[in-house]
Computed example of a mutant assay.
Amino acid sequence: MNMATKQSVDLKAADKRLKQFAKVVNSDHATRKVKSSETLSCGVDLGTSSIVLTVLDQNDQIIYGAFEYAKAVRDGIVVNYVDSVNILKRLKHQAETVLGVELTTACGAIPPGTGDSSAKIVANVIEAAELTCKHVVDEPTAAAKFLNLKTGTVVDIGGGTTGISVFNHGRLTQVLDEATGGFHMTLVLAGNHQINSDDAELLKRDPDKEPEVFPVIRPVVEKMATIVKDSVGNSIKQPVVVVGGAINFKDFIPAFSKVLGMPAYKTVFPQFITPLGIAMYDHD
Rank of each mutant, 00 (worst) to 15 (best):
S41E: 06
T162A: 03
D230F: 14
V136G: 12
S49F: 10
K23R: 06
V44W: 10
P112E: 03
N192C: 09
V232R: 01
V268D: 09
A119Y: 05
D10A: 04
D206L: 03
K6R: 15
S37K: 07
L260A: 00
D284S: 09
E139S: 01
Y81P: 02
V79R: 08
A264I: 10
G159Y: 00
H135I: 07
P275C: 10
V228F: 09
G170H: 08
P270Y: 09
V34Y: 00
A109F: 02
L176R: 12
L189Y: 07
Y265P: 03
R218V: 11
Q61G: 10
L53I: 09
H193K: 15
G113P: 00
E96A: 04
V85D: 05
A14T: 04
M1K: 14
A123Q: 10
G245R: 00
A106L: 04
N148D: 15
I63F: 01
D45C: 08
L18A: 02
D57I: 02
V155C: 05
V154T: 08
F249V: 04
L11R: 12
D57T: 01
L46K: 07
H169Q: 13
M280I: 06
D206P: 04
F21W: 06
L46P: 01
M185E: 02
K229C: 07
C42F: 12
V82G: 13
V73R: 08
H184A: 06
Q61W: 14
S37E: 07
G244N: 03
G43L: 02
K89Q: 12
K12L: 15
T114P: 07
F67T: 08
T48E: 14
F167G: 02
N196P: 02
A128R: 09
V73M: 10
A22S: 13
K19N: 13
M262T: 15
V25C: 07
V101C: 03
G113S: 00
L203E: 10
L88E: 01
